[in-house]
Amino acid sequence: MIFNRVTDPQWEPAKRQIALLNQKMKCQIELVDLADQTYLKSSIENSQILCNATSVGMGKLADLSLVNDPSWFHSDMVVVDAVYEPRETKLMRIAESAGVEHVFNGLELLIQQGAESFKLWTGHEMPIDEVRNLLN
């Protein structure tokens, strides 16, 4: 399930991409308006994984979260925020306050994307452990 705002300029392109993916996948992806908070809450409560792949929680949006109510989470789910700076986002703090045991930021995603780019550009493996140590 993907949530976005109908007013976002990427809404229509996202609908087209999702339609193409749904033709090729066994599971179905659904695009839902983020304004439908009732549906968002129900979806989170019934999910095993929540991944925020937006910039909400980063930069000028650091004080924001797409989910503000800890009761929407359950302790046995996984919450991933693709944001890597700040290292702990508002979404992560809310999930942790709800007792979610598996909460991750986007730092490892950034490292792995960098490693793939490094290999494409140089033909060499990036020293992932060294980079990870420098960033921690």
Rank of each mutant, 00 (worst) to 15 (best):
A14R: 02
E108C: 01
I128V: 15
M126N: 00
I44W: 07
E85D: 14
L91R: 07
L21R: 04
I29R: 05
N105P: 06
D69V: 00
I29A: 04
D8G: 04
N105F: 09
E125I: 00
Q17A: 05
S71D: 15
I128Q: 10
L120Q: 13
E125R: 11
C27E: 15
S117A: 13
S75N: 05
R132Q: 10
P86N: 15
Y39V: 04
S55R: 06
Q17L: 06
A82H: 01
S71R: 07
S117K: 01
G114D: 02
R16C: 00
L134D: 13
A62H: 09
K24P: 01
R87V: 01
A53Q: 08
A95C: 10
E45F: 05
A19Y: 00
N136K: 05
D76I: 02
M126Y: 11
W11M: 01
L107Y: 11
K119M: 02
R93L: 14
N46V: 06
A14T: 14
E101Y: 04
V83A: 10
C51E: 03
I44G: 01
N105H: 07
V131E: 13
N22I: 11
P86A: 07
G99L: 02
I18G: 04
L109T: 13
V103R: 00
Q37R: 15
P13S: 03
Q37F: 01
